[in-house]
Computed example of a mutant assay.
Amino acid sequence: MVQQLSSEPSATLIYPESDGKLMADNTKQFRWIVVIKENLELLFATDDHVFIAGDLLWYPVEGNNTLAQAPDTMVVFGRPKGDRNSYQQWREDNIAPQVVFEILSPSNRLKEMAKKLQFYERYGVEEYYLFDPDKLDLQGWVRAEDRLNVIEEINDWVSPQLGIKFVLTSDNLEIHRPDGERFLTFVELGKLREQEKQKIQQLEQAQKDAIPRLHELGLTREQIANVLSLSVEEVNKVLP
């Protein structure tokens, strides 16, 4: 059973907003943190009661400002979006983050990661994912009653909470949305947006080029507008 989170409140106790540690040790680790966090933000953008944060200190117990972890990414269902200096669980309807992600860096130690697993297990995390981008090694744990149990086969695993699928290839980790689309970097999203913009521009130009030809065939301006799904005003801008 998850430990009961209660203690004597303290009006003067300060809960630090930083643990003094760097968010990431290198560009690869940082890139993965951003990709996972921002793609999850995008996935749940229309749900106002899914809070997602990166490197935010989570305090599970009121009155203890030394008991905390800052997951690389955490997802909390049932809490509103919005800015926070830290996640103080007793101020959040006592809802613990259900899903957390950690991205390994060379400086991480086995003992440190073991303590994090114990923390997440003790304070109610439902799913925990640990990824080493250097070794392309993904590990996962899912809760069964009061324990986080290792996911024996992580490849093609679908997160019960998030609906995303993890696919390990020979040279990469792919994370797929429930609709099958792959998590993309900001650069990839920018390129995709530019491609869509170019497609729209090409379609608009093709419509404009078709207007004179349809007019020569004897169609009225109203008919042309109907065929091309344009307004009559847009047709009039092209025809003399």
Score class of each variant (00 low, 15 high):
105 S>C: 07
174 E>A: 15
238 V>I: 08
175 I>M: 02
201 Q>P: 08
83 D>K: 12
79 R>D: 04
18 S>G: 02
151 I>V: 05
170 S>H: 13
125 V>C: 08
2 V>M: 07
83 D>S: 11
26 N>E: 03
193 R>S: 14
88 Q>T: 02
162 L>W: 02
166 F>A: 04
95 I>G: 04
199 K>H: 12
153 E>Y: 08
39 N>S: 03
54 G>R: 02
10 S>N: 10
145 E>K: 00
46 T>W: 12
27 T>A: 13
12 T>H: 10
121 E>M: 03
118 Q>F: 15
26 N>H: 06
106 P>C: 02
65 N>W: 05
153 E>H: 14
240 P>R: 13
147 R>I: 04
21 K>H: 08
57 L>Q: 09
64 N>S: 11
151 I>W: 06
236 N>R: 01
200 I>W: 12
165 K>S: 13
49 H>Q: 11
89 Q>N: 15
92 E>W: 01
88 Q>L: 15
147 R>S: 10
234 E>S: 07
51 F>I: 06
27 T>Q: 10
38 E>H: 09
26 N>L: 05
55 D>C: 07
123 Y>R: 00
160 P>Y: 09
109 R>L: 06
187 V>D: 12
33 I>N: 01
219 L>F: 12
72 D>Y: 04
158 V>E: 04
8 E>Y: 12
193 R>H: 11
111 K>T: 13
173 L>A: 06
166 F>N: 05
229 S>K: 15
146 D>C: 11
48 D>Y: 14
45 A>C: 11
70 A>V: 07
79 R>S: 09
88 Q>H: 12
41 E>D: 04
82 G>A: 11
144 A>C: 14
46 T>M: 15
122 R>H: 05
130 L>K: 03
203 L>D: 10
19 D>L: 09
136 L>C: 02
161 Q>V: 13
135 K>P: 00
94 N>A: 14
107 S>F: 06
234 E>D: 09
207 Q>N: 08
51 F>P: 00
189 L>C: 02
226 N>E: 15
229 S>R: 11
141 W>L: 00
154 I>R: 06
212 P>G: 09
122 R>E: 08
74 M>A: 06
147 R>Q: 10
69 Q>R: 10
145 E>G: 04
75 V>S: 02
162 L>T: 09
237 K>D: 03
97 P>S: 04
82 G>E: 08
125 V>N: 00
38 E>L: 06
230 L>S: 00
200 I>Y: 12
171 D>Y: 15
178 P>A: 11
125 V>D: 05
17 E>A: 01
180 G>C: 05
173 L>T: 07
176 H>A: 10
120 Y>S: 05
97 P>K: 05
174 E>M: 12
132 D>A: 06
169 T>Q: 10
165 K>C: 08
91 R>E: 15
135 K>L: 07
132 D>F: 08
162 L>A: 01
120 Y>I: 10
107 S>R: 09
218 G>D: 07
148 L>W: 03
19 D>Q: 05
167 V>W: 11
89 Q>Y: 08
153 E>R: 11
65 N>P: 00
135 K>D: 04
158 V>Q: 08
113 M>I: 04
183 F>D: 00
35 V>L: 14
226 N>K: 15
97 P>E: 05
208 K>H: 02
79 R>T: 11
78 G>A: 00
231 S>W: 12
63 G>Q: 04
152 E>G: 01
131 F>T: 02
114 A>T: 13
152 E>L: 15
114 A>Q: 12
113 M>T: 12
144 A>H: 14
34 V>E: 10
81 K>M: 08
129 Y>I: 05
5 L>Y: 11
